[in-house]
Design a protein around this nucleic acid. Structure first.
Lengths: 116, 116
DNA sequence: CATCCATATTAACTATCTCTTATATTGTCT
DNA sequence: AGACAATATAAGAGATAGTTAATATGGATG
């Protein structure tokens, strides 16, 4: 009934035991973070963010310095991770940020502002 | 004078040009995100977070399922990325979260709550 | 329907990551 | 000083990820 939760091991000698962690949430978060933690994909996110709304692939291609195939694969991974939306309109595909992505980017901006 | 800022390429036919992006900030963010986006390292962050304060390496070792060496390397990378603090006390090293890490984890919790 | 254009997919190669084992460092205690 | 305990570092093997070139798909248009 208690699902994916482990209890910490017994405390040995030096310090306090560490708390339990929900392994399902861990995996989901890592998926998200590793999708964002790559030059090409993160730049795509920032480009879409900077455009203020949806952007078509053709413009993203010219913005980042990799092949069309690489851009397409990067966008696919971002989509799978739930970071971008995808809309087809005629020949073009438009990508936008999800709320999740917007909030994470906003936090990164805020955190960077403090630390820098 | 205008540093690490690129201007977007000219708009071709289909849509609006994408905005400029600060490449220095991009690299720093990717460093941060890729440091977090790994099972071992993210679990360490969450374990430290769950413990509420500083945790010594010995307890972290027993919590995640990799070797002592792997834990040490993971913590080093987190430290370099500015995600954890490090304090030496006798034989032990205590690791804690930085404000930056705490805020990012909090955002991830909030975002997951919404989407799930 | 033939063709073109925008994007996606596949396959193959290379580079990068992450782990493990072995060894070094640093502090403590007798 | 010598032994031991906790952590860090080095080196190398195996797994994983990112890129490109080539090909496929699907909508638009003459």
């Amino acid at each position: 009934m208690d699902g994916n939760v482990e209890t910490a091991t017994e405390d040995t000698a030096c310090c306090v035991p560490v708390g339990a962690v929900d392994t399902g949430a861990l995996a989901a978060d890592v998926e998200l973070l590793s999708a964002m933690g790559n030059d090409t994909r993160y730049e795509l996110l920032r480009r879409i963010d900077g455009a203020g709304g949806e952007v078509c692939v053709c413009d993203l291609e010219s913005a980042v310095g990799v092949s069309q195939s690489a851009v397409s694969q990067a966008l696919s991974r971002l989509y799978t991770a739930g970071l971008v939306t995808r809309r087809k309109d005629g020949n073009w595909r438009y990508y936008g940020l999800t709320d999740e992505a917007e909030r994470l980017l906003a936090t990164l901006d805020a955190v960077r502002g403090d630390r820098q």
